[in-house]
Design a binder for these strands. Structure first.
Lengths: 345, 345
DNA sequence: TTGTAAGCGTTATCAT
DNA sequence: ATGATAACGCTTACAA
């Protein structure tokens, strides 16, 4: 491995060309494989590149070629365990294609998101992958007119260079709720996510559908709203418990919400799953290590990231990419148990 | 002939200049506040900028000025809860200074790290913040010769434009171990992190020092090595439990390791803290919601990120920035309890 | 195959 | 104060 040379003098294409006794276009061609070049010149150039430890200036390259080989990625929270998985998938797949990600955060704030999207444009990214968010759909459509967009977790009206990827939230919620019913639970509480958030809404719909199909009544008093984070799960669970409502199972809108709910129960010495069953949604890596390990609906977060990055590379190649809904899978671990009548609250 | 839905024509400085009836230098001056310009021209330019929705091209700007206002950030894992906090701190502080982060991952792999570091150079970043890592110190020193570097969590020999930030790992480990001893524990196991990792080594030293100061013998059989992740904690704890060694408390080298150890105990119906006390290190956000909430050593991860970004902006202003060791704080939550003789294994 | 030269969109150095 | 004009480092017709 070579080390960066001490002197800060910049080595340019021209310098390499001079050193190798060829023109700069020839060097450029060799570096980019743009055209065939005679073997001796090729060797001479490679030798000079080595000797001077030459590194092409990406800025200049991009300015001249009009392409940056960079894909903007608008996440919401750079430290979130959920978005982190998406980012990792995107990063890995992009790396395999020779593209570089440029990560920015929108903080679940439409204005921030829009500002970041503009920023990405000024950075001349070749395309943008958007993870959730609240930014105006019309703005996004106009945006997709300037640069290809892959949208994760948010269904948008189809457009030529705008592809949407997601999972079947409704089905996942339906499956896990149905499973709870199979275990004998009749009164199942639900801690929802943000109102207006599509994932949250779809999961609620799946939950209600499962109840209905089982001939169970939907009970408004069994619904609380969280914020997709632990804090919201904790508070919502407390409210549920304080309300005096009767239930033997809880469906949390996502795993983080479930963690919070779990703590609320721990505080009151309510055993999981002996007293109350608990399920989440997402299957975050941490859910494997929660106490007890969480029963949840697995969505292939990392893989979706990879698919998103792959969709982007296709878009950049000019291909047409269809929208895609990926399947989810019920993962039964240890927070669910058969209802024991006596244990019901 | 113009395509109705073709790519939007690019608005350039020159176009704005023409529209405003001034030279492009004047526009540039107004945009950058580089010099004073008459009010009427100022207004004319601003109007044109508005009308054409002009956005300066960062690439061209950087190429011409030699500065990108971009700071490379080499993390290890984009989805790690620990690094995530660092990144968030860096992102927030950088945003406040008008700098943009460029995140890349090294995956705890010296070769990857070096490749990414080279990549950052190629992207002409103004400076680089490195989070941990295994890359050769000599390489880093040479690197810091080309561009200012802020290193997090890894002590390096001082250099003019290389500043190292960290926490007092030894002290934190000492404090938490001492607290365990105060609670009556005499046989305290330790699940270490990676060998050769400075954090891991320092924490081990603090642990040993605490034992020694309390007149307790260091017992090799009470030491296992994890990998700073849940998986390693689980395996290490299993080995500890299988070894037949006697102990009533466990000091895990970091919180993630503690989560894994926690699961190992849950599987064997060992109660925490009733049967065995457990402590971690870091105080990840998730530790507040683990079951039970984890006693740990808090290091201000997010704040360190901010300090790192601040150090970088100072470096970029040409200031001299001293190395800094930040204090840690013992956070007693619910995984620690007084030793009850009968409960000792 | 190879070289020449005209950009790419800004900033910066000169004069004026 | 303002405007030419030369960089910045590279790609890419267009020639040869």
């Amino acid at each position: 491995m070579k080390k960066p040379s001490g002197p800060p003098e910049t080595v340019t294409l021209a310098k390499i060309a001079r050193a190798a006794g060829v023109s700069s276009s020839t060097v450029s061609r060799i570096l980019n494989g743009t055209a065939r070049v005679s073997a001796d010149k090729q060797r001479a150039v490679e030798e000079a590149v080595q000797r001077y430890n030459y590194r092409p200036n990406v800025l200049a390259r991009s300015l001249a070629s009009g392409r940056t080989h960079t894909v903007g990625v608008l996440t919401q929270d750079i430290s979130s365990p959920f978005y982190g998985e998406w980012l990792r998938g995107i990063e890995d797949e992009l790396a395999a294609t020779g593209l570089s990600p440029l990560f920015v955060s929108g903080h679940w704030n439409a204005a921030d998101e829009q500002r970041q999207l503009e920023h990405l444009l000024t950075r001349c990214v070749d395309g943008v992958i958007v993870l959730h968010g609240l930014v105006d759909p019309d703005y996004l459509r106009a945006y997709a007119d300037r640069v290809p967009v892959v949208m994760l977790g948010r269904p948008l009206e189809p457009m030529p260079r705008l592809v949407c990827l997601g999972v079947d939230n409704r089905q996942g919620a339906y499956d896990v709720t149905t499973r709870l019913i199979e275990l004998g639970h009749r009164r199942i509480a639900h801690i929802a996510g943000h109102a207006l958030q599509p994932d949250s809404e779809q999961r609620m719909i799946g939950y209600r559908q499962a109840l209905e199909d089982a001939g169970l009544a939907f009970d408004e008093t069994l619904i609380e709203r969280g914020n997709f984070e632990e804090s919201g799960g904790l508070v919502a669970m407390d409210r549920l418990l304080d309300s005096g409502a009767t239930f033997s199972a809880v469906f949390a809108a996502n795993d983080q919400t479930a963690y919070g709910a779990r703590l609320a129960m721990y505080r009151r010495h309510i055993r999981v799953p002996d007293d109350i069953s608990l399920v989440g949604f997402d299957d975050l890596p941490a859910s494997l290590y929660s106490t007890p390990p969480l029963t949840t609906v697995r969505q292939p977060i990392y893989d979706i990231g990879r698919v998103a990055a792959d969709a982007m590379t296709r878009l950049l190649r000019g291909e047409t990419v269809p929208n895609q809904i990926m399947p989810v899978e019920l993962i039964e671990r240890e927070t669910t148990a058969k209802l024991v009548e006596a244990a019901s609250l």
